[in-house]
Design a protein around this nucleic acid. Structure first.
Lengths: 226, 226
DNA sequence: ATGGCGTCTCTTGTATACAAAAAAGTTGAC
DNA sequence: GTCAACTTTTTTGTATACAAGAGACGCCAT
């Protein structure tokens, strides 16, 4: 994994290890949005004092995963629907940019990796296991990020993707999404391999925005039901 | 100032105040890239202990302004030329996206503010004071960020703009840049007011990329000279 | 002079101690 | 029973203390 700023070398610092662990627990939903993170409890759980834990929380706050309310404590960030939509809009643009750059810059190794990943997606889509397709899908997108030959863009995109993970999970097993997703992948790969930056950008942007739309539907149905 | 995550309410936390102060000193060049930041010295300077200062450094590290080398200390991030180019490329895309969204979404208040800001830029450009044009230019871009109606995008763009500030400063007083910059502003405003998202995006993207090109020239001449 | 080795100092990383603010719990009046 | 004011408890924010690693310095051998 090519690291930029987010996942530094852990070195001997507890703070970094704690940040990674907490981040994982937040994006996987172990800690729910709005949940309060008690310093002493967490410190005890990890077997450290509050000092390195607070440094970890400070980093998470800077990354926008938690909010620090002065004298009140740390809370897992709870995004409003509007804020989630904004992030998907941004994600769509970043993915589109990665696709456009990849179409212009990919080398032979990228071509091979992209084709192989597409076949992997095809296989997982056919198998029907939505969880393994999820992983294949993630790998597919990572390849495009890297092929864009802009490590900063790749890192920012990967980071936002991670931040959106909990919300994407909500609309995972929705209907025939896997089949349509794979069909979109095929068009994306065709555009990139053809060096058609404009089409690649549009296809990837749509590919992401559709997820946002599905999330909107999901929230709307929630509002109706609840 | 609409705040998202970067500039939180300082509350009663020294750490946040320190982070702001250190960030300002880094982007304004008081602390040079690669410079080591001694914890005790800084703590003494600000009249606090190392504890809140370390939390501030942790936040800056998460924001990519400093790197924390385990057991070695904190250093102001020193970007390679390649890394700077990557960030300008990203900046161009973000500005372009802001422009495209602004063209579609701006309301009457935004129109008025944009036109007023353009006139302000015209005035400062004519006066010839490159420093005051710099401020007018910054305000102009901020208006576009806001008009895009995506607070997350606006914040990310503003943040990257800040991070690039030291490098933009390098090529500030270069030739007739002010005049050409203002001419670009005029075309950008025309596109946005006309609701032409595509043109607005292209014009803004170019507007930023030209700065990157100038930086490239600057570095090239440095390499020749030194 | 130069390069390797041991010591010493300085700095970081973490734990602990303490002050102050917020939350929780209690008492009393109505 | 409800609400308000007071008291107690908990938790944050900061300072300080201490352990261990990194770098500086000196020494000696070549």
């Amino acid at each position: 994994m090519t690291s930029l700023v987010a996942d530094r070398d852990t070195g001997t610092r507890h703070a970094d290890r704690l940040r990674q662990a907490l981040e994982a627990d937040i994006v996987t939903g172990v800690f729910k949005p709005g949940e309060r993170l008690d310093e002493q409890r967490l410190a005890d759980r990890f077997g450290v004092s509050r000092t390195p834990l607070r440094e970890a929380l400070a980093q998470l706050a800077a990354n926008g995963l938690v909010t620090l309310q002065p004298r009140r404590g740390a809370f897992v960030v709870s995004l409003t629907f509007q804020e989630i939509v904004e992030r998907f809009e941004m994600m769509a643009a970043l993915e589109g940019m990665c696709g456009a750059l990849a179409a212009r810059r990919l080398d032979e190794a990228d071509r091979a990796a992209l084709v192989a990943s597409l076949e992997e997606c095809r296989h997982e889509a056919a198998e029907g296991d939505s969880d393994s397709y999820y992983h294949a899908n993630e790998a597919f997108h990572q390849i495009i990020y890297r092929a864009a030959r802009n490590a900063f863009l790749a890192e920012q995109t990967r980071q936002l993707q991670t931040r959106l993970q909990p919300y994407r999970r909500l609309q995972l097993r929705a209907g025939r999404r896997v089949a349509t997703s794979f069909a979109e992948h095929e068009r994306i790969v065709a555009a990139i391999l053809a060096g058609d930056a404009g089409t690649a950008e549009r296809e990837l942007r749509e590919h992401v925005l559709i997820q946002g739309d599905r999330l909107r539907d999901f929230f709307a149905s929630l509002a109706h039901a609840g």
